[in-house]
Amino acid sequence: MPATVALAVARYRPEEEPAPTLQTYEVPFREDWVVLDALNYIKDRLDGSLSFRWSCRMGVCGSCGMKVNGTPVLTCAAFLSEHLPGPIRVEPLDYFPVVRDLVVDLSDFMRKLKKVKPWILREEEKPLAEGEYRQTPDQLDAYKQFSMCINCMLCYSACPIYGLEPSFIGPAAIALAQRYNMDSRDQGARERLEILSGYDGIWQCTFVGECTKVCPKNVDPAGAIQQYKLTSAVHWLKTLLPWGAR
């Protein structure tokens, strides 16, 4: 094991330079260090101006997503030892505007997420006094996988379609819409249909499949999208029938 390892970190200082550049730092190598620890070391001891976001360091808050050697990862879960010998390239997530260094702006996603109504929609809400909604373990199982999403944006950064067509709603938002569509307590599938199968929805997706591969929570957005294509196509066929769904 080496004593030190080099990190080539993307720097972008909007007041000084027109485009990002790579800056190399030498940090101690430790078996138990993740890339985030190395970045913290740099910030604390080598260069206090380095900017990056992180919060929980336990893989649930979704703040610390970056590209490490070209692949989007949560830096709190990417061990240095997996990327030896280095230099390890650390860059901001692709396809989002870079605010500074490794910090990107996610407003685009925030806006899209709202459009798919990722909350339980019901024709009529049951009063609290009637107690809880029941749900069998099988019904829970139907959507549980999609409920794990932490909005870390790795899937967007892995999706070339989002890069090429920024209006695409994108993997996480569609997976989250499916999370509610599949929930036995939800009745909002019709309401989400228009946006999901509209111009910027599922049909933009060509099933590259990278979103699922980089997902740190095994959410499988690619699966969610393909499954929804079938749902949407079946719905389309039904509208042809005289007695079909309106």
């Binding site: 505007p97 407003s107 090429l164």
Partner: peptide, 20 residues
Amino acid sequence: MSLGAHYTPYHPKWYRRRVS
């Protein structure tokens, strides 16, 4: 009914890389 790629408040200094 395109959502469009709105980036408001889009900071002029934020860097956007073009896809090659």
